[in-house]
Design a protein around this nucleic acid. Structure first.
Lengths: 205, 205
DNA sequence: ACCTGAACACCGTTCAAGT
DNA sequence: ACCTGAACACCGTTCAAGT
């Protein structure tokens, strides 16, 4: 039997304060929204002083940025999974669009932190990198449909922005999109993706 | 010559503190982003005590909600203008999509407050109303293209979410969309709208 | 009716000090 | 190396009091 990890030598921590803080932060966002997160409250939940986080994160924003990187990474994994499960590139992009909406619905706190925490990309280059990695995963798929790299980027941007818009509407209940209309909205994203693919093909012809 | 309005009887205000606070708030958001706004700083800029705003707004969120209503209203005006300048419904919806992107680029602070301030619609029914008013302006246009109210709503939702996604990407510099690529992005939104219209027509046929 | 002054709990951040 | 304790400026909000 593994010993319980509850006791920690007072004055030190259990060795993974960084992760504990990230988890507490995500909890807080889930409970009170991206604005309800405070470093002090997260410290309290992790059982440390309010000064402790500064040994692991430069400031409040840096913790959020770390979570956002996690968000991008999980998106990339989901998208890669959706792509690798199919063969036809149009099917793959439609699945990507649906997965985008599903990510927002199934990981709402992570989605909000990643896209709604007001993180400045210029101040957090890791975010730009994570975003580029996402793009790099999908670009080859789009390139199998279009002729030319530029057209592939264009198509991918259109599908992504349409999926993002639907994901945001779903998250915020905008435009009459009910928060529980996940399947309908995911289907809508896939449908839109197919329409944009058809348009890209007819433009190329 | 109209007398300068600078002097105010100390102890009272110039009579429009509410507006002065809203302007100061929008200034702050423009300067430091939607999270950089504080009621105290806005009070300072308006030249009143930190308690004064509470005679005009229930709390910090209520001020933001008032600004968001302004945002929806200005959007509606812009969209109505784009629609009334044209005759063909497809042209009108394409112009609407382009205007959506332009609003984000030309009124960034207002766009951010309206969509990125984390306002809870359940707690601010005025927001839901303003959003519905927007929808009501565009629905008849979409209905001229589709057969049936439900299909019109569907088409409008697709065009709006695509435009919203592009607007967000432009505002946040996501997905390689440069912040200064306004015309290109507006054109992209219009193009996407036309593709979705074509798809709606072919689905109906 | 509209505003001030003072107060409270809370937050982000810093820094010297402890182990 | 990693954390605490105490401190600072700042914030949202309340309330009694002033005119």
């Amino acid at each position: 039997m593994t010993p319980p990890v509850k006791r920690r030598p007072s004055g030190h921590h259990h060795g993974d304060l960084r992760n504990a803080l990230e988890r507490a932060a995500l909890e807080l966002v889930a409970e009170k929204g991206p604005h309800g997160f405070s470093l002090n409250e997260a410290s309290r939940r992790a059982g440390v002083s309010v000064a402790a986080p500064y040994k692991h994160f430069a400031d409040r924003e840096a913790l959020l940025a770390a979570l956002a990187v996690t968000g991008y990474r999980e998106q990339r994994e989901r998208f890669a999974g959706a792509v690798s499960a199919l063969d036809d590139p149009a099917d793959q992009l439609a699945a990507f669009a649906a997965a985008y909406v599903r990510f927002a619905a199934e990981r709402p706190a992570l989605f909000d932190v990643t896209f709604y925490a007001g993180l400045d990309k210029a101040r957090h280059p890791e975010l730009a990198e994570a975003g580029d990695a996402l793009l790099a995963t999908l670009l080859p798929v789009a390139a199998r449909i279009t002729s030319g790299e530029s057209a592939a980027f264009d198509l991918l941007l259109r599908i992504s922005s349409a999926a993002h818009g639907l994901a945001v509407f779903l998250r915020q209940g905008l435009f009459g999109v009910a928060a529980d209309a996940l399947e309908e909205t995911a289907h809508r994203a896939a449908h839109t993706a197919r329409a944009l693919i058809a348009d890209a093909k007819s433009s190329a012809a």
